[in-house]
Amino acid sequence: MKNPFKKEDHTGLIVGIAVGITAGIGLGWLFLTDKGAQYRRQITRKIKEGISDSAAGLIDKKTIIPKKVAKVATDAVIKD
């Protein structure tokens, strides 16, 4: 039988609600404002650049193709 006088811990629920509200506000700002659209473009560029660098590094490591040449090829594949 449960103790009716023992307090239940709702910390996880409160943290989850706070994270959800924060994420919702952040996504709303990114998608509903002009400044957010600029940040989305910057984030997209950085992600594509990171993927291209990672792919070029992997190609350089696994083949005889130099990283500079592989970078040109991966940039052509991952267009802006």
Rank of each mutant, 00 (worst) to 15 (best):
I14K: 13
V19S: 10
A70T: 06
D53Q: 09
T33C: 03
G12N: 11
I17P: 12
R40E: 00
V19L: 13
R40W: 01
P4C: 10
F5S: 11
I65T: 12
G36W: 00
A18C: 06
D53M: 05
P66A: 09
A76M: 13
V19I: 14
T63C: 13
L32P: 00
L27D: 07
D60R: 09
P66E: 12
K6S: 08
I43P: 00
I51C: 03
G36Y: 00
F31T: 01
W29A: 06
K46F: 11
H10A: 08
F31K: 01
K71G: 04
K35F: 03
K68Q: 09
G20Q: 06
L27V: 15
E8V: 14
I43N: 02
K48L: 11
G50L: 03
V15D: 05
K62S: 14
A70S: 13
D34Y: 09
G50F: 02
I25C: 01
A37K: 10
E49C: 01
I17E: 15
D9E: 10
K67T: 04
G36R: 01
S52M: 06
K35A: 07
K62E: 15
A37N: 06
V72E: 11
G36I: 00
G26C: 03
G20W: 05
T44P: 01
K67R: 13
S54V: 07
W29C: 04
K68L: 05
I64D: 13
Q38V: 06
K46S: 14
P66W: 09
G28A: 03
M1G: 11
K62C: 12
H10R: 15
V19N: 08
A37P: 03
H10K: 15
P66T: 09
S52C: 08
N3H: 12
A70M: 07
M1Y: 11
D53C: 02
L27I: 15
L58K: 11
D34M: 12
K71Q: 11
G28E: 02
G28R: 02
P66L: 14
A23S: 12
I78N: 13
A73F: 14
G12V: 05
I25Q: 00
R45D: 13
R45Y: 12
V77S: 08
F31W: 01
I43D: 03
R40T: 01
K48D: 06
L30W: 01
I51S: 03
I21K: 10
Q42V: 03
A56Q: 05
A56G: 08
